[in-house]
Amino acid sequence: MLDFAKGPILAIQEFFILAGQAVRNVFRRPHYGADIALQMDTIGFGSLPIVILTGFFSGAVMALQMSRALAQYGQVGRTGTVVSITLVRELGPVLTALMVAGRNASGMASEIGSMKVTEQIDAMRALGTDPIQKLVTPRMIATAVVLPLLTIIADFTGMFGGFIVAYYLLNLTPAQYWHTVWTALEWNDVSQGLLKPFVFSFAISLVGCYYGLQTTGGTQGVGRATTQAVVVASVLVFVLTFFITKIFVGNVVS
């Protein structure tokens, strides 16, 4: 019974040790600026097309779906409000994080995992570099910087997608749509919409790196690590968004 629990608990402990070391390294030399820039480029710029596409269509589909519900109350004119709030509070952060988890948590796990199974991680340590400082910390910093930015882009393209639907299919005027979009947002919405991607970024990068560093068993092991990283990172995004939302909604109600 206890043996059954030992594996997962040990894994969680190792994950937090890795997270602690990665965060501590932010304040320690040497810093690998070039690696951070490279990671920002792959994670940030590389994810742009997919983030824009998912953002656009999630906004568009929200406008379509909600217009159906709002029509029951004769409130189709408030489509912008619904699109804006759902995007900024929930859909933008979560969908962007899921896309980045799929793209980059897997990329990190497979890249670091391949290095692990070919002993390049050991070689790094033997040749005077800390793999956490050189590999994990730059990925963590880069994700923490670019994920909120990607989320903002997804939010805006989503609002634009909603606008296309509202204007062409629901026959709303641009002024009406953008006015409702703009007035719907409060600081509470914007702050949780930006806090979420920042928190998700650590889950995505650290889970990806953790599974990469834990890889054993050749190419098959790399495949397994990659899958696990994506699954765990994605599930964590949903769990975290629940708890963050709980904190913010709790504030508003009380």
């Binding site: 070919t118 390049q120 005077g128 570099t129």
Partner: peptide
């Protein structure tokens, strides 16, 4: 470790770095 050379099985060269960067790695990073 800077006083020990180690040749790993299969070499363990960094495949994202050139040969020059690989060989320079210990000189720069140690």
């Amino acid at each position: 470790r800077s006083q020990v050379g180690m040749l790993f099985q299969e070499g363990a060269l960094f495949d994202s770095l050139t040969i020059e960067e690989n060989v320079a790695y210990p000189l720069i990073n140690q």
